Measured scan of single mutants.
Amino acid sequence: MATVKFKYKGEEKEVDISKIKKVWRVGKMISFTWDEGGGKTGRGAVSEKDAPKELLQMLEKQ
């Protein structure tokens, strides 16, 4: 499965696309949330040019 790689608060992170729940556009950035388990929700953002095609497809479906 595809993953999204991004930096959050200076830390490199990687999230499996299948865990992503919500995707939206903020200017030229793609923001998203995912389920971290245990009732926690993670947040992240990646530039439109660095976003994997699967993430962009999720954005178009909404």
Rank of each mutant, 00 (worst) to 15 (best):
V23K: 01
L55W: 02
R25G: 13
Q57R: 07
S31H: 09
D16C: 08
Q57F: 08
S31L: 04
M58L: 10
I20Y: 00
K7A: 07
M1G: 09
K28P: 13
I30Y: 03
S47T: 06
G39A: 04
T41C: 15
A51F: 01
Y8V: 15
E48K: 10
E36R: 03
E54A: 12
A2E: 11
V15K: 02
K28V: 08
R25N: 07
T41K: 11
K9M: 11
I20C: 08
T41N: 13
A51S: 05
M1A: 13
R43E: 15
K13H: 13
S18V: 07
L55K: 00
G37F: 15
D50W: 15
D16Q: 12
K5E: 02
G39T: 12
P52S: 06
K19F: 12
Q62Y: 02
D16L: 09
G37V: 15
Y8S: 06
E12C: 09
W24G: 11
W34L: 02
S18N: 06
A45R: 10
G27A: 13
K40A: 15
F6T: 03
F6A: 02
K53L: 06
T33D: 14
G38L: 09
K19P: 01
K28H: 05
W34S: 01
K19T: 06
K19C: 11
D35G: 07
D35Y: 07
G10S: 03
M1Y: 04
K53Y: 08
K22A: 13
V23N: 01
G37I: 15
F32K: 00
W34P: 00
G10Q: 03
M58F: 05
G38V: 10
E48C: 14
F6V: 06
R43F: 05
M29E: 15
G39H: 07
T33L: 10
V23F: 03
K40M: 10
G44I: 13
D50Y: 07
F6Y: 13
V4N: 00
A51W: 01
K22T: 12
K61D: 13
A2F: 03
W24E: 06
E14T: 11
R43S: 10
V4I: 10
D35P: 15
K21F: 14
G39M: 11
V23H: 01
E14V: 12
I17F: 02
E54L: 06
K53P: 08
Q57E: 04
K22I: 06
G38C: 15
E36T: 11
E12I: 08
V46F: 02
M29R: 10
V26G: 13
V46N: 03
R43A: 07
I20L: 10
G44T: 04
L56I: 11
Y8W: 11
T3G: 05
F32D: 00
G37C: 15
T41H: 14
S31R: 07
G27P: 08
V4M: 01
K19A: 14
L59G: 02
I30Q: 00
K22Y: 06
K7V: 15
G10E: 08
E36A: 06
W34A: 01
S31F: 06
F6L: 03
G38S: 10
V4G: 00
E48W: 03
K21N: 15
M29K: 07
M29T: 07
V46A: 09
A51H: 02
M58W: 08
R25M: 14
K61L: 13
K9I: 03
E36F: 07
G27Y: 10
K22Q: 14
W24Q: 12
V26M: 04
V4Y: 01
L55A: 01
K5R: 07
Q62S: 06
G39L: 15
V4C: 02
K7Y: 11
M1S: 14
A51Q: 04
K49N: 11
I20N: 00
A45W: 05
T33Y: 05
K19L: 07
E54K: 07
G10M: 03
